[in-house]
Design a protein around this nucleic acid. Structure first.
Length: 738
RNA sequence: GCGUCCUUAGCUCAGUGGUAGAGCGUCACAUUGACAUUGUGAAGGCCGGAGGUCCGAUCCCUCCAGGACGCACCA
């Protein structure tokens, strides 16, 4: 709009002595305020008790920050998560609860290592093997440290009221001790075992990963229906099978059919020697319930070494497994395919079978390909000797009745001892548990907690090498990063130290607020670990939140380049505004589409609050200004009652974790009731009233303002703290009573 | 295949068993001392479709369509 620009004042009129600045200087105020909070020590509940701000026997409120990965910088999703938690924490603290929120970071083994490896390849054209384990780890640790510092700065910038004196790191000495203790305890219970099983091998990352780190991507593929070849008597192999992975068929040791399938019944139990593209196969026909007679030909070529399900079929029928693909995704079959990549080998086999007239059908299908979430490598199922957590194995421990880890995880939620909200996530949780298999915890990477097991020939020592003994070698592998994260709710509180006061006071945690994408990876495993190690749930309530997406609804990611720096936004609009922009409209568990306009709107709200305060403060009767009437009692006034009603609603919303509703109501009240109605109504009295009327009017406005600030504080801590301090010098809103 | 969620104003989204709300956007008007980072007001929605329960449904149930996601032994 080319509207006539009104001449703006060149510079705002400077504030009169004792008056508020005409403009709210977000950046400098927010910086000062955080320092003021930190200096007060009140982020630490011990200080609150010592200073008499919190009663010693007050009900505790505890939470641990889901530790951000030290893989670089925080994104807008972290800002959202921090805001949610800080609201809960500040509310609890103002309610007088003994409130602890523990900060920390996660070493994020694979994520961090692969980030550093990428950087290393780019800048120095070196691999980790060029550097060697020790030197490489020095690089990673340096990177992790730098990330940590950035992350801490970002978290503070958001206003998070964390007790930094208790800061933890999943790879620091205390947490390492926890990991070793947990491993040993579970090993002794028979819940951690070493086994040769089929695992998800990531050829790109050169490591095993767990089922939950595998993602599925839809790809088009060709489904071939074929016969292995001709038997010695010249007849075709009697059963056609279908597959999308022809190259794995070199490893087939059986054909499985459904037990009731009449077509194939006569073959069950028979064994055949048949050449497949020049390689001899020995195939047994077995009957197995897992086969779907309606799919394909109703017969499955069983490749135990390269398929999770086939491995299980093989176990049920005592079939041998033949590995034909190695860790680099290359064929290990003698002959023309040897050394070929799987895709090439597939083409070659297809061509060969065509030549021999063995292909009966080729059809285009869409199938899910398993991909490693961190590296993008296509998963190759391989049999390997790895460490696992047994989830289905019955066990008994002193304080626990006979159970399994799976049952234990289920019970914690089913019994209501852990409440997951919104409720729909409980269903998802149960569904996951029902499909759960043993958790593979060893990784062939260097960054992380080294598997605390030592070997000497056939001997194994868990926890530590036998004292004074020579020649013991520690397992070269490291543990899944989620193993240490799973201990987080109590490893941050002193466990496994005996008689830790923090553990006694603050465990189980009151609340945990993770995103739904780590419900299984993390939340479930915390429940598992707390259950088996402490016979307790790790937390009472899990508040699941969604993902912050960009304007198009896409996830923020480095590859899309759509990242938004929360620090930049906080500097432009204020952390207060950013928090509100993320919270309002974000129903629990739902994704949030990020909209900078909204943040801008809440920046305006900060200014509005500043101006309401400024107006009220300008009308403060001068001390000794002639009005000697007592402070009027306006507790019966409609305005006061209205505010009390609002307070009730806001409290209820906060208690129900409906932060979005509470925030919206406060916004509405302050702007459209307090400013637009009440302040306007009082203007006449303030201008033309008697000194007593002026004074009464002022007192009413001040009281309404301060109460509003109090309620808004958990949401917009900076501006509320600053303004409150102007009216109540020396007081700190953060620890005022709700 | 199993499961979860979403579909409400132009856009982004809240919400409730009793004929709908916010922010942004749009339009009109106002405004020279708290605030243009403003105020007042307006336009704008058969609350995805079809059934059902109910005195009454956007809200509960069933089915359908479209979309997102999770899980799975889709060979």
């Amino acid at each position: 709009m080319a509207a006539e620009p009104r001449p703006r004042e060149k510079s705002p009129t400077p504030a009169a002595p004792g008056q508020m600045e005409p403009r709210y200087d977000i950046k400098s105020v927010e910086a000062c305020i955080y320092k003021k909070w930190e200096d007060s020590g009140f982020f630490n509940p011990d200080a609150c008790v010592r200073e008499g701000v919190t009663a010693r026997d007050a009900e505790p409120f505890s939470m641990v920050l889901p530790p951000p990965n030290v893989t670089g910088v925080l994104h807008i999703g972290h800002a959202f998560e921090d805001a949610l938690q800080d609201i809960a924490v500040r509310f609890a603290r103002m309610q007088g609860r003994r409130t602890l929120w523990v900060p920390g970071t996660d070493h994020a083994a694979i994520a961090t290592q692969s980030k550093v490896e990428k950087d290393l390849a780019k800048t120095e054209k070196k691999s980790r093997h060029d550097l060697g384990r020790e030197e490489f780890l020095r690089h990673v640790n340096k990177f992790a440290k730098a990330s940590h510092d950035t992350i801490v700065r970002q978290i503070k910038r958001m206003g998070a009221s964390l007790d930094w004196s208790r800061e933890a790191y999943t790879l620091d000495e205390k947490r390492s001790q926890g990991v070793r203790t947990a491993f040993q305890t579970m090993y002794d219970l028979g819940l951690i075992y070493r086994g040769n099983r089929i695992v998800n091998w990531d050829p790109k990352g050169q490591t095993v990963i767990s089922d939950d780190e595998v993602q599925h991507e839809e790809r088009r593929a060709k489904l071939y229906t074929f016969r292995y070849g001709r038997l010695a008597n010249g007849e075709l192999f009697p059963i056609p099978v279908a597959t999308t992975r022809l190259e794995t068929k070199f490893g087939d040791t059986a054909v499985a059919v459904h037990p009731t399938d009449e077509r194939y019944r006569k073959f069950v139990g028979k064994e055949y020697d048949v050449p497949f593209c020049g390689a001899p196969l020995h195939i047994k026909v077995v009957a197995d319930e897992s086969v779907d007679p309606a799919f394909g030909t109703g017969a499955v070529g069983v490749t135990p070494a390269h398929s999770m399900t086939d491995w299980e079929i093989a176990e049920r029928h005592g079939l041998p497994h033949v590995q034909v693909i190695n860790e680099y995704g290359k064929m290990t079959v003698p002959g023309p395919v040897n050394g070929k990549k799987t895709e090439e080998a597939r083409e070659w086999v297809a061509e060969e079978l065509r030549k021999q007239g063995l292909i009966e059908k080729e059809e285009e299908v869409v199938q899910n390909v398993s991909v490693a979430e961190r590296t993008g490598g296509i998963i190759e199922p391989l049999p390997k000797l790895q460490w696992f957590v047994a989830v289905n194995k019955p066990f008994k421990r002193g304080f626990l009745r006979r159970t399994t880890l799976k049952q234990l995880m289920r019970d914690a939620v089913a019994s209501g001892r852990v409440r997951i909200g919104p409720e729909r996530f409980e269903k998802i949780y149960f569904h996951w548990i029902d499909n759960l298999r043993d958790w593979c915890i060893s990784r062939q990477i260097w960054f992380g907690h080294r598997v605390p097991v030592w070997y000497k020939g056939e001997q194994v020592s868990v926890g530590a090498p036998p004292a004074g003994a020579e020649g013991w070698e520690q397992d070269p592998d490291t543990l899944d990063t989620w193993f240490s994260s799973a201990l987080w709710p109590f490893s941050t509180l002193g466990w496994p130290e005996k008689n830790s006061p923090d553990l006694a006071t603050y465990f189980p945690n009151t609340l945990m607020a993770p995103g739904y994408e780590i419900l299984f990876l993390w939340v479930a495993r915390m429940i598992l670990m707390s259950g088996v190690l402490l016979d307790s749930v790790p937390f009472r309530t899990v508040l699941i939140h969604g993902i912050v997406r960009d304007a198009k609804g896409q996830k923020f990611s480095k590859s899309l380049g759509n990242g938004i720096d929360p620090l930049e936004l906080a500097d432009t609009y204020g952390a207060d505004a950013l928090r509100m922009g993320l919270i309002v409209g974000a129903a629990p568990g739902n994704d949030v589409k990020f909209d900078e306009q909204r943040v801008k709107g809440y920046r305006n709200f900060s200014t509005k609050i500043w101006n309401i305060a400024r107006f009220i403060q300008m009308n403060k009767p001068a001390a000794g200004g002639g009005d000697t009437s007592p402070r009027p009692d306006f507790s019966g006034r409609a305005e006061v009652k209205e505010l009390a009603a609002l307070k009730k609603e806001v409290s209820a919303h906060l208690e129900a974790f409906e932060f979005h509703l509470a925030a919206e109501k406060l916004y509405h009240y302050i702007w459209h009731t307090l400013a637009d109605k009440i302040v306007e109504e009082q203007k006449a009295a303030l201008r033309d009233g008697t000194p007593a009327e002026k004074s009464a009017s002022y007192a009413l406005l001040e009281s309404l303002l301060l109460d509003s600030l109090k309620m808004l504080h958990p949401f917009m801590p900076f501006v509320t703290e600053e303004v409150y301090g102007i009216f109540r010098p020396g007081k700190m809103l953060m620890v005022e009573a709700w």
